[in-house]
Amino acid sequence: MLFFSFFKTLVDQEVTVELKNDIEIKGTLKSVDQYLNLKLDNISGINETKYPHLSAIKNLFIRGSTVRYVHMDPRSVDCTLLQDASRRGKFLFLFITMASYSLPRDKKVRRTNYITEAVAQSSK
C-alpha cells in the first residue's frame, strides 16, 4: 500500500519505466493501481526496432509485474516523508489512502498536502 500511495503522489509527473526486458519507456504517469500497474501518456524513448508500432500509441498500460525500475525526478519526492512512512509501516499509509479518498475535487491542490496532513494526524 505504501508504494501505491507513493505512486499516486507522482501522477502527472514524467517518469521513465525500465521493464525486465531492458526496454525503457518515458512518459507522463497517469494512473496507478494496487498491483502497481502503471498507465502512461505521451510515451517516448522506446526501442524502435523491437517495438516499431509503439510510435502510434496514445497511452500505455504497463503491468506492474514486468517492471524492473521506475526512474523519477527527485524534486517530486518528499524523502523525509517517505522514510517516515517506511518506519511506521502500513499504518500510516492507511491514513494517507483515507485522506486521498476525501481529496477535494480541485485538481490544483498539491498532492503532497494531504500526505502531510495524514502524517500530522497519525502522530497525534
Partner: peptide
C-alpha cells in the same frame, strides 16, 4: 497475467511504421 503492456492505437498513424 500474460499481458506485458497494452495501449490504445492512434488509428490515423497506426500503419505508418
Amino acid at each position: 497475467e500474460n499481458v506485458v503492456m497494452m495501449g490504445e492505437l492512434d488509428i490515423d498513424t497506426e500503419d505508418d511504421h
